[in-house]
Simulated assay, not measured.
Amino acid sequence: MSMLIEVWGDYACFSRPEMKTERVSYDIMTPSAARGLVEAIYWHPGMKYHIDRIYLLKPVQFASIRRNEVKATLLSSAVLSAAKGGEVPMLCTAENIQQRAALVLQDVHYVIECHFTMTEKAAPGDNPGKFQDILRRRLAKGQCYHQPCFGCREFPANFREWHGRAEDIPALPLTQDLGFMLYDLDYSDPENIRSQFFRAKLENGVLDCRDVEVFT
C-alpha cells in the first residue's frame, strides 16, 4: 500500500561512499536513507518497505561545517568478552576526538512515496491494512522507535503524513543528472555485504527509484 510521508529539517548528510575522510553529501536523500527514516517511525519483521519516489520541495543548498568525531571504535570481540565477565573495554573520548570537515545539505524538505510488502515473518493475524493503520497513527502522533534523522544522528528529521495526492506535491521544477547513487546494501551474504548503486536522475524535482538498474 502506497504512503506519502513529508520530512524536513535544518541539515542533512547522505554521505557519498567514495569520499574517504571528509563527509560529502549527495544532492538529495538516497533511497536507503529514506527507507531507514521510515523504519525509524514504524518497523515490523512482517513487512518490508520499498521507496518509490522522493520529491524535492526546497532548493539544494550546501553548507560546509566542521564536526568533532571519534576516530577510534570498540571492537565487538572486546564487548563480547566483557559480557562474559572479562575486562571492560574503555574508550577515552578526549584522546580520540578529531575535527573533520563536512559538506552537508541545509534546509531540506522532501516527500517520500513508499509502499510495503508482507514478508514470511508476518504472523497469521498480520495484514497490510493493519500495518498501514499503525503507521498512519504513528505519523499523526509523532511517534517513532527512535528519532528519525537525515543521515547522521545529530541531524534530526521532522515527519508527518502528506495528506493529498502525489500529483499535487509541489516539487521543484528541477531536472538534473545526479550520477551514480547508493541504492541499498545487499545483505544476502553476511560475510560479503555489497553496496548497490544506480544511475540517479532528478526529473522535475522527482527522484524515481522504481525499476532502476542496480549495479554492485
Score class of each variant (00 low, 15 high):
179 G>R: 11
111 V>R: 03
61 Q>P: 00
49 Y>H: 11
104 V>S: 03
83 A>E: 14
30 T>F: 01
159 F>K: 08
171 A>T: 07
121 K>R: 14
115 H>K: 10
135 L>Y: 07
196 Q>W: 01
61 Q>R: 13
54 I>P: 02
126 D>K: 04
4 L>I: 00
53 R>V: 03
24 V>Q: 09
145 Y>G: 09
59 P>T: 06
201 K>R: 14
102 A>K: 09
33 A>P: 04
200 A>L: 11
47 M>H: 06
105 L>G: 06
40 A>T: 08
190 P>W: 06
172 L>A: 08
216 T>C: 08
121 K>Y: 14
120 E>M: 06
30 T>M: 09
105 L>E: 06
73 T>L: 09
149 C>S: 11
177 D>P: 07
3 M>P: 00
23 R>W: 01
22 E>R: 00
140 A>F: 02
2 S>F: 03
95 E>I: 01
214 V>D: 07
31 P>N: 06
150 F>R: 04
193 I>T: 06
130 K>M: 13
109 H>P: 05
97 I>F: 11
163 H>D: 07
72 A>E: 14
59 P>N: 12
132 Q>R: 15
151 G>T: 08
169 I>W: 07
43 W>G: 03
203 E>N: 15
107 D>Y: 01
211 D>Q: 14
107 D>S: 06
73 T>N: 15
65 I>E: 10
61 Q>Y: 04
76 S>V: 12
35 R>Q: 15
39 E>H: 09
4 L>K: 11
100 R>W: 06
191 E>N: 15
64 S>Y: 02
64 S>M: 04
91 L>W: 10
73 T>E: 14
172 L>G: 03
165 R>L: 09
45 P>M: 10
174 L>C: 13
84 K>N: 14
41 I>D: 02
136 R>G: 00
74 L>M: 14
166 A>M: 06
157 A>S: 06
83 A>P: 00
109 H>N: 10
171 A>R: 04
70 V>I: 15
49 Y>M: 09
94 A>V: 07
9 G>H: 02
63 A>S: 12
64 S>E: 10
53 R>C: 04
184 D>L: 00
116 F>N: 09
103 L>S: 10
66 R>W: 13
175 T>R: 07
19 M>Y: 15
174 L>A: 09
115 H>C: 14
19 M>I: 03
90 M>E: 14
176 Q>I: 03
184 D>E: 11
194 R>T: 10
190 P>H: 10
5 I>E: 06
41 I>L: 02
74 L>W: 08
159 F>Y: 13
54 I>N: 07
195 S>F: 07
186 D>V: 05
94 A>C: 04
78 A>L: 10
114 C>S: 12
122 A>F: 00
41 I>P: 01
20 K>F: 04
